[in-house]
Nucleic acid binder design. Structure first.
Length: 488
RNA sequence: GGCCCCAUCGUCUAGUGGCCUAGGACGCUGGCCUCUCAAGCCGGAAACGGGGAUUCGACUUCCCCUGGGGCCA
């Protein structure tokens, strides 16, 4: 059997990271089985429609490297792939069921439905439609008067479906409402549209969050009424926030686009998501997987059953691993947008600044958890730094006189260098420390504070090289003045 | 509230009756390295929710409870 799976988002905004994890599972399965991955847009809820959401969705998928074989923009033999252009198909399906007596027209008013529900609730029962129109003779509600079409759900028995991961799951029909299939405006309800589309698009596996389990019997009943074979269901666990609740807006960064802007690498995010609820097992302890390895090794039968908490800590670690594994050239390319977005460098990047960036990249590579971290780490190269405080210039056990002497000696040393490079500086500065009777640490610390304006910086001499001789000396002068002023 | 799903370190997980004195990873933590911070290396603390049943033997099978989550209202 050919595997055909789909991602069917509503165009209501940025795809959510929890849903994307499920998309990753679908996509990995499709690629591994050499099946087809379909993108379908479920836009029948016209009120929630967000303009341009389609692009947001496809951009997110593209960025993550999730490609699709059929869908809006790429075509396919099962189109259209946008539900609002398939309305006739849903109407036909609903009318067929009415003609066969498996569904019926219902013209109950909203007021009556509310009253019915209220009454049932008062009795302590689950509010459901009472079936008034169900028992009317066929044709009692005319086709041209406002009405909805409801499914005639069996009043007794069980509806059972098979889930690949959990086995058979059953629900009592008596608890399932005579669900509306077609609304009075001719639009399908969500479940009817999905069933019709999945069937017509020959979707073989429906892999979705397990929060959909309770609605599955409704769909099975529609399949049965239409005489169609349901797909294979794989309900995967939800992704939870750190508070143990279904991951949502309240948990901060949750859209793919936000992760991109925060400086996560798509390959790291993909790796991380694939491991949320899945592991290779069999004693294998590998955690870093390339895209190809994930495709080859993914196994839907090994998807965990329990929900997984999204760990930003682990994602940060994994992102750092991926950053360290990049070549310096590749890292530079990925870093540039973050420098420009922060306003530290102009676009396009002038050649002399590019040289500086090339110096910086190896210095920051193993210090980055996210690409965005580079901004805070290297801003001193592109901006003025604050005047250093006295404390910053006076390490413990050092007097102001000693500090001043150290800074003046450093100024002389750096001005005299033939080449202003880290390689030239380091051995001489170490020798200088010895001459001054200091350890390297305190001396370097003074210079670091004076030139970078920070207690913590990338390796000192590379940083000085990036700042350049003129500005380095200027900043040392400022520090010198701070100390002379203090000494009066 | 009704129905449904789930249950190994704080988190992600390995484990499918004896290989478990429960393994790995993140995080936390002690140390080494070291110009700061990282990275790297070595070490540590940290879990089978509870009770029955099956079995010579249960993390692993079954039942109940508890807990968490979800859907509907």
């Amino acid at each position: 059997m050919t595997v055909r799976v789909r991602f069917a988002p509503s165009p209501t905004g940025y795809p959510h990271i929890g849903n994307i994890r499920t998309v990753v599972f679908n996509w990995l399965y499709a690629r591994q089985q050499q099946g087809t991955f379909v993108l379908r847009i479920e836009d029948t809820d016209r009120e929630r429609y967000v303009d341009d959401a389609l692009h947001v969705i496809t951009d997110s998928l593209t960025w993550l490297g999730i490609d699709y074989d059929e869908g809006p923009g790429v075509g396919g033999d099962y189109g259209p792939y946008v539900q609002s252009r398939r309305l006739q198909l849903y109407q036909d399906a609903a009318e067929t069921l009415v003609a066969q007596g498996k569904a019926y027209r219902c013209n109950c008013s909203k007021e009556r439905l509310d009253a019915v529900r209220e009454a049932m609730r008062a009795e302590g029962k689950t509010p459901m439609y009472d079936g008034l129109c169900r028992d009317k003779p066929a044709g009692a509600v005319a086709q041209d008067e406002p009405h909805v079409i409801r499914l005639k759900v069996p009043r007794e028995g069980l509806t059972t479906f098979h889930d690949v991961l959990r086995g058979d799951i059953s629900f009592e029909n008596a608890l399932i409402d005579d669900q509306v299939l077609l609304k009075s405006d001719g639009y399908p309800t969500y479940h009817l549209a999905v069933v019709v589309d999945d069937h017509l698009m020959e979707i073989s596996h429906v892999m979705r969050g397990d929060d959909w389990i309770p609605s599955t019997p409704k769909r099975i009943l529609i399949y049965e009424a239409l005489g169609w074979e349901p797909p294979t269901y794989v309900h995967v666990p939800l992704v939870l926030g750190p508070d143990g609740r279904k991951l949502g807006k309240r948990h901060g960064a949750t859209s793919v686009d936000e992760f991109r802007r925060q400086g996560y690498l798509p390959e790291a995010l993909l790796n991380f998501l694939a491991l949320l609820g899945w592991a290779p097992g069999e004693g294998d302890e590998q955690e870093i997987f390339s895209r190809e390895e994930l495709i080859a090794r993914f196994d839907i039968h090994r998807i965990n059953l329990s929900p997984a908490v999204f760990s930003y800590d682990k994602l940060d670690w994994m992102n750092g691993v991926y950053i360290r594994n990049l070549s310096p050239d590749e890292l530079l390319v990925r870093l540039i947008p973050f420098w420009t977005d922060a306003g530290l460098i102009p676009t396009p990047v002038p050649v002399e600044i590019l040289r500086t960036l090339e110096i910086l990249v190896p210095l920051v590579q193993e210090r980055l958890k996210t690409l965005k971290d580079v901004v805070e780490l290297t801003d001193f190269v592109f901006q003025e730094v604050p005047v250093p405080t006295l404390e910053a210039l006076m390490p413990k056990n050092m007097s102001a006189e000693q500090s001043l002497e150290a800074i003046r000696a450093t100024q002389r040393l750096l001005s005299g260098l033939v080449q202003f490079t880290a390689e030239e500086m380091e051995p001489r500065m170490r020798a200088l420390a010895t001459e001054l009777g200091l350890k390297a640490g305190p001396l370097f610390g003074i210079v670091r504070n004076a030139v970078t304006g920070k207690q913590v910086s990338p390796p000192l001499f590379g940083s000085l090289q990036a700042v350049g001789r003129a500005r380095t000396l200027k900043r040392l002068e400022v520090a010198e003045r701070v100390l002379t002023a203090h000494l009066g």
